[in-house]
Design a protein around this nucleic acid. Structure first.
Lengths: 147, 147
DNA sequence: GTAATTGCAAATACTTTGCCACGTA
DNA sequence: TACGTGGCAAAGTATTTGCAATTAC
């Protein structure tokens, strides 16, 4: 979808959930669309369109609201703290994480990504490639508890 | 590998790079092996084996050293800040990230994970499954600069 | 006019460092 | 003994919240 209609569509979806059409909301959405990649709160609030236009707290709260209604997603494990894990040679682990309780469990199935990893190495020239793959969802216990 | 020999092997690898065999190092490695999943600094320093045994700063510096020599890995995009990205319906993005300069670019290739995602849904009973896939490596520019 | 939104400043939370004492090799 | 390592406390950085003023509808 071209940029203009895409923005309009996004704003419509926001409006539909009760959000008001503010300058900050518009500029934030345009910035995210133009960037076409994940951005940090800091990057966003210092970006050309938002810098001096609105406070970092405003951007933060917009990101919160947009996340809540599914317009954007916050990447990474759903905790504020960094995660560390052992690196066992020859062993690769992917994870299944509950978005409600935060439980993390290793996935048994063989990782389907290694072929793509090789292709990327060849096509892009990146060195020392590795990957991280995480699945997120609501675990049976939480699903039950919420029902 | 069974736990005991695995721990010994890990300690040997640490020793080989010049690290000293300390109580804190041993207990940290055992904790990580037993956990078999990524853990935060806070979880680690409050864990049964490390709690009251050593300071959080000690655990932090051990994690730093172990990361530097490739014994463990810090998960997530390599910035301290959280990343946010647009969620376009029907569009799924995976990313290629340079571990040196932090550049993030979307990957063109079709994502090879959807089949596995369906299998996990069936086997585990998790609801609302989605995934994140990131490739990390050193981009050609950085590889060149470092050479 | 009313309720959502914003800016500013302050409070939290997690990470990182300085410095000197301590323990390992 | 020498140098890596540890504890404690403080600094640094990112996130989150309170509240009065402002703005969208």
């Amino acid at each position: 979808m071209p940029t203009r209609p895409l923005i309009k569509d996004l704003i419509d979806r926001c409006r539909a959930t009760g959000l008001r059409r503010t300058k900050a909301l518009e500029q934030l959405l345009v910035t995210l669309v133009e960037a076409d990649r994940p951005m940090t709160l800091s990057e966003l609030s210092h970006s050309e369109r938002l810098n001096d236009q609105c406070d970092k707290a405003t951007v933060f709260r917009l990101l919160q609201r947009l996340t809540a209604i599914g317009i954007i997603r916050r990447l990474g494990l759903h905790e504020r703290a960094a995660y560390f894990t052992l690196l066992i040679p020859g062993l690769h682990q992917d994870y299944l994480i509950c978005t409600e309780c935060g439980s993390i469990e290793p996935i048994q199935a063989p990782c389907p990504v290694h072929q793509l990893e090789r292709e990327i190495t060849e096509k892009t020239g990146y060195k020392n490639l590795y990957h991280e793959l995480e699945f997120f969802g609501v675990c049976p216990l939480c699903a039950n508890r919420l029902a």
